[in-house]
Design a protein around this nucleic acid. Structure first.
Length: 425
RNA sequence: GGAGAGAUGGCAGAGUGGUCGAUUGCGGCGGACUCGAAAUCCGUUGUAGGGCUUGUUUCUACCGAGGGUUCGAAUCCCUCUCUCUCCGCCA
């Protein structure tokens, strides 16, 4: 959430950003409501001042056994008025915040200008796309032959988009999670095991509510949301807390299952494992000093890239243009891995700096040299999701006879297994 | 699920209707003493929002959250959340 002061002082800039991001938040209405709030606030504070003075006087009179009934009668009127105005202010604030919660973050100056995702800029490309002396198959065909995915039974027990992994497929997925966590731990991230359900306040804090509420599974009986990413519980860990300046940046990594309803996205990249309702992901989260948060974004991105490099998967780095930037992000890099069967780049990680946008909502602060409280900057990135990595591994490491070579770095996690030729291993 | 106890400033812990933003202790900060430090003594100590003459200024709010009673609530009443103890159930 942007600060009301910031909106007031940078009205035109905020409006421009809304336009670029095709967001219809009514900025003028926010300012109008806030002006009204201030006006009434002055009035009600004056009345409260009156009442406080009168209360002292009444107390003094009672002590001296004097009659205070006239003053009390006056204050009855004043108190009624105060109540009325307080109520009005609360209504105004609620209306103002309702709109403010829908105003997107301001892109950092280094973010490229653009109209759509087509204007994202490729910053780097790493590795070589594999070359085959046969026609490479797509991951579904490979997985089906090896009997390591079981989508039909997943659909039977839960519904379409809930994958079942079997045998070597399940082991490969688990190996990836372990490998990711170990790699990040060695890079100084503290491993967190978070709850997979969160309350509404947490979902609001990281920005899923109200903007993308319909994308989350909701357990109404208990008023809990299934997390779409570990970013939600992990970023909220320090909600309403102060962090000692010398402990910044706080670096955390967390594995979680991720649940996404993907409402409205059918028809686009929905094949097989590319877009599913439940998948596994290791997330990186940093709480950083504002002076250093863009350096931290670069190193976060590198920490995610190392995973892809060690898996020897060709990938590229995109700098998202302002129009494609998500609601809460000020800057974002996407990592896309090459899938030889699909012959497509697959997004496997988004590394974002949210600056103070999330911290303002969830109130995570520090004191610069022990001075005034300031909001930290929050950052996160996938490090990474297993589903699309599985796709890339199956397609890039496939052999002519339909087997899949296990990437070297994963072998220690799979009892030294070098090749997957069927599910029963 | 049932019964009970509790939630107060960075921490500990008083306060049960009227100068209470809140006694006190610890911690922090400043100073004295000291070559320096410890100990001791003295002083100081939160957050947010607003007004204006922008000031070591003034006002308002904040004692888990939200309502209520009252001229006035940390204090009384209601609802909720969380923590602890006991009982029940259970991976």
């Amino acid at each position: 959430m942007l600060d009301i002061k910031f909106i007031r002082e940078n009205t035109q800039k905020v409006k421009d950003v809304c336009k670029i991001k095709k967001d219809d938040a009514n900025i003028d209405k926010i300012l109008e409501l806030d002006d009204e709030r201030k006006k009434i606030l002055v009035e009600v504070e004056e009345l409260k001042h009156q009442r406080n003075d009168a209360s002292l006087e009444i107390a003094a009179k009672k002590k001296n056994k004097e009659d205070a009934s006239e003053l009390i009668a006056d204050m009855q009127y004043v108190s009624a008025k105060i109540r009325e105005l307080d109520e009005k202010i609360n209504e105004i604030i609620a209306a103002r915040d309702e709109i403010m919660a829908r105003v997107p973050n301001i892109p950092h100056e280094s973010v490229p200008r653009g109209e759509s995702e087509k204007d994202n800029v490729v910053r780097e490309e790493w590795g070589k796309k594999p070359v085959f002396d046969f026609e490479p198959k797509d991951h579904l065909t490979i997985a089906e032959n090896l009997e390591i995915f079981d989508f039909p039974r997943g659909a039977k027990i839960s519904g379409s988009g809930f994958p079942v992994l079997r045998g070597a497929g399940a082991r490969l997925n688990r190996a990836l999670i372990d490998f990711f966590l170990d790699a990040h731990r060695k890079n100084g991230y503290t491993e967190i095991q978070p709850p997979f359900f969160v309350n509404a306040q947490s979902a609001f804090g990281t920005g899923q509510i109200p903007k993308s509420k319909e994308q989350m599974y909701y357990a109404g009986e208990d008023d809990l949301y299934a997390i779409p990413t570990a970013e939600v519980p992990v970023t909220n860990l320090y909600r309403d807390e102060y962090i000692d300046e010398k402990n910044l940046p706080v670096k955390m990594c967390a594995y979680s299952a991720c649940f996404r309803r993907e409402a409205g996205s059918y028809g686009k990249d929905t094949k097989g494992f590319l877009r599913v309702h439940q998948f596994d992901k290791v997330e990186l989260v940093k709480l950083a000093h504002p002076d250093n948060s863009y350096n931290e974004l670069e190193s976060l991105r590198k920490d995610a890239e190392i995973i892809l490099q060690k898996l020897e998967l060709p990938y590229r780095v995109l700098a998202l243009c302002d129009a494609d930037l998500s609601f809460a992000a000020a800057k974002c890099y996407d990592l896309e891995v090459w899938a030889a069967g699909e012959k497509k780049w697959l997004e496997v990680s988004s590394c974002s700096n949210f600056e103070a946008f999330q911290a303002t909502r969830i109130n995570i602060r520090f004191r610069r040299n022990g001075g005034k409280p300031e909001f930290v900057h929050t950052l996160n990135g996938s490090g990474v999701a297993t589903a699309r990595i599985l796709v890339a591994i199956l397609e890039n490491y496939q052999t002519k006879d339909g087997a899949v070579i296990v990437p070297k770095v994963l072998r220690p996690y799979m009892d030294g297994l070098e090749e997957i030729a069927n599910s029963r291993i």
